[in-house]
Design a binder for these strands. Sequence first.
DNA 1: TTCTTTCTTAGAACTATTCTAAACTGTTGA
DNA 2: TCAACAGTTTAGAATAGTTCTAAGAAAGAA
Lengths: 139, 139
Amino acid sequence: MGKIAKDNGKAVSRLRTAGLRPTRQRVELASVLFKGHDRHVTAESLHEEVVSLGLKISLATVYNTLHQFTRAGLLRQVIVDAARGYFDTNTGDHQHFFLEEEGALIDIPGEDISVSGVPVPPAGLTVDRVDVVVRVKRA
Amino acid sequence: MGKIAKDNGKAVSRLRTAGLRPTRQRVELASVLFKGHDRHVTAESLHEEVVSLGLKISLATVYNTLHQFTRAGLLRQVIVDAARGYFDTNTGDHQHFFLEEEGALIDIPGEDISVSGVPVPPAGLTVDRVDVVVRVKRA
DNA sequence: TTCTTTCTTAGAACTATTCTAAACTGTTGA
DNA sequence: TCAACAGTTTAGAATAGTTCTAAGAAAGAA
């Protein structure tokens, strides 16, 4: 029985339930990710973390695994950083539909959509803006 | 007087008002961007467009100019594509504060925040999910 | 076990973007 | 009008994050 086997039971069944073969790497990553409270990681930050724990997992595997976990519903990807910059000539108050398959944007007028209940930000911070992206797919 | 001088008067004054020196490249890009209805462009799509119009502007200048225009409030950047993948172990209904200066994420519980008035998507499309990002800055 | 399929890996490749440093241009003021 | 200077543009190199490739390794089935 391995050193970190105690948490692995949970991780293994979580993976099985998700339809993912519980390989060593996936089990170790799942154990680290789902051990305690909720968290936000990048591929790189997670890779550094597992390496510093003495686990042998390549960066490519971390990338693959994060995407597999996301596809399986175990994780969710949060988009805050622009890979491809889209620039909008409409600077007024409005939001967007994003057609994932085509990479196209469609404006939603600001009068139509509204966001309520945005909590007061943590101390010392002010809201710069609120972005809403409605991701749509072929039905 | 140049060939496309007719629209350039508007572009020049728009640039002057924004505090940007009206160079040939900026004037041409502004003319293309703000000629008709609102639009969404990427640096690459805009570069292709101006090149196909016979204008001589480098891709680097298109990038610079789009950012200058954005800083000046003439454009707005829409973030829909992940440059750096952030993955969240919380897959439940919730949204995020994004601390731009630090690149950190903080959850906003789904019960707190709500988006109303999302229009019916264009025909043949269904809403996949609605992402809200509250961008915060040091006060 | 043995077979088959799936997974992992190092390193190369890729993509969008930014940087560099030299040449060029718009503006100002004499 | 034009010299001087600060700001701008450019090609190409560099960068960062991510994905691809192809070959070996490991999991599960029989």
